[in-house]
């Protein structure tokens, strides 16, 4: 039992923070269909999620997902993981992503849950905030 209350002992997600693969700055995509923003002022954290897809129906696959984030390391790790998870899935799957998924995949401590909620908020914004023009599907990178 750690009585020194530091909250830094677990952090299985650390490699993701140190080397994220889904930072939007590394993507050459010009037009993202969905972009959502959210922030958690109490943690001085912000997250922006970008989705590239050919429509918003349930079965539409997500071609690319990327993030920009500012905040404690766990926020960047959650955003990166979410993008990795999304890229293999569909819009329908995206709607079903929950905090429990993050907790399990990243072994989040209770004090780190807010980061998952932040990313989910940004994702919800991206799914809603579609810039999809039905006649002009996205041009792949």
């Amino acid at each position: 039992m750690n009585v020194l209350d530091d909250g830094h002992t677990a952090r299985r997600w650390l490699p993701r923070f140190l080397s994220p693969r889904h930072a939007v700055v590394n993507y050459a995509i010009m037009r993202w269909q969905g972009i959502g923003d959210a922030d958690t002022p109490g943690a001085d954290a912000e997250c922006r999620l970008h989705i590239a897809c050919d429509g918003l129906c349930e079965q539409v696959p997500i071609a690319a997902a990327a993030f920009a984030a500012f905040g404690p390391p766990v926020v960047i790790a959650c955003a990166d993981w979410a993008c990795e998870w999304l890229e293999q899935r569909t819009i329908g799957d995206a709607h079903g992503l929950s905090v429990a998924h993050f907790e399990q995949a990243l072994a989040l401590a209770p004090s780190e849950r807010y980061a998952a909620l932040l990313v989910l908020d940004a994702l919800a914004g991206a799914l809603e905030n579609s810039r999809l023009d039905q006649d002009r599907p996205y041009l792949g990178s």
């Binding site: 750690n2 009585v3 020194l4 530091d6 830094h8 002992t9």
Partner: peptide, 9 residues
């Protein structure tokens, strides 16, 4: 620092 703390624990 964390290693030292682990030793204390």
């Amino acid at each position: 620092g964390r290693e030292a703390r682990a030793a204390v624990d």
